[in-house]
Amino acid sequence: MANIISDETIDYVGILAQLELSDQEKEQAKKDLGTMLDYIDKLNELDVTGVSPMSHVFPVWNVFREDQVTNGDDHENMLANAPEEKNGQYVVPKTVE
């Protein structure tokens, strides 16, 4: 394997991806990521000098509209999905001391 993924790298990726991995999952992830990157490195065979990156096939631009409310108050339905709610608000663990 050409791409060796270090413990530091996989921990960093875990932070970015907001995932908590068990030791076993970490080892598997290092292997999987390395294998995929080896495969993706095939792109290095291509000369892309001067080629602009294309994010969308069609040109996209900001879509502007008047700031008018078109949907009704769906407060109750939205909150119905909340894992925890109180007084019409989402409840999360305390974030500031």
């Binding site: 291509l46 602009s52 294309m54």
Partner: peptide, 8 residues
């Protein structure tokens, strides 16, 4: 690099 490849 992938987006440039996509253009090609």
């Amino acid at each position: 690099k992938a987006l440039r490849t996509k253009a090609l």
